[in-house]
Design a protein around this nucleic acid. Sequence first.
DNA 1: TAACTGTATTAATATTAGTAATACAGTTAA
DNA 2: TTAACTGTATTACTAATATTAATACAGTTA
Lengths: 131, 131
Amino acid sequence: MFDLDVRSRKPIYEQLVDKLKEMIINDVLQVDEKLPSVRVLAQQLTINPNTIQKAYRELETQGYIYSVKGKGSFVNQLVKTENSEELQKVKAQLEKLIAEAMFFGMTKDELQALINEIEDQGKRGDRDDRQ
Amino acid sequence: MFDLDVRSRKPIYEQLVDKLKEMIINDVLQVDEKLPSVRVLAQQLTINPNTIQKAYRELETQGYIYSVKGKGSFVNQLVKTENSEELQKVKAQLEKLIAEAMFFGMTKDELQALINEIEDQGKRGDRDDRQ
DNA sequence: TAACTGTATTAATATTAGTAATACAGTTAA
DNA sequence: TTAACTGTATTACTAATATTAATACAGTTA
């Protein structure tokens, strides 16, 4: 299921986060599907359960999954996280970054083009979800 | 000239970078104006010259100043940094961040609004400076 | 209750960040 | 040329943070 590189400069939990994000975004993992428990996955990958836990918590705070004590961790319905804390954080970052980009000569049109480009990429992956 | 807090959680060199950026953006320091040498400023602030050096290098890679060995460090002409490495970096960050924002439900219109807002702030600052 | 689940606390360790000591090297004016 | 400026590179010490792990706590379910 996962191919981790334990001696990569990129931390294990981060590899896990990225991998799981990717699977969620690409619908490899369906909404409300149960992820492997922290202990089971830890044993499979022969790493410490707390490392899985860290990855899962990260995914939870970013809105990708939700966890229920005693039950397990499950894929979240991403569209539902409208005004999440995560979105607020992203917005704040965006403000700074856009201001900086403009300061260094990036024009409104260039920004617009960038947004359109990204929107197109998103649609390709999204299929018939919205609009 | 500077009021630093040596026991702040924010590193000294970062305080310097922020302060100098601010002065450059607000035209307190004019284009091509010479900054204090690393040693002079270090003595004034009673900190290590290498700390100043780190701040200056950071400002240089970000395009705010330029340094010439044996001569000194000078305020850069910011508009001229059209396709700088820094802008490329900012663009790359923007791409990721915009994609993430959209992923979490931020719409094109909201992004547009954000850009306009920031653009307006920029213009207001320009006018104020001219007096 | 037994065997699952996630979570919190704490600590050991690895890695990175911040600062400093020192030496190298270019510029300029006497 | 030399003295006194300039920035820069190397190295190392220390502080702070990140990563992982050991362990105990707590909820769920059959």
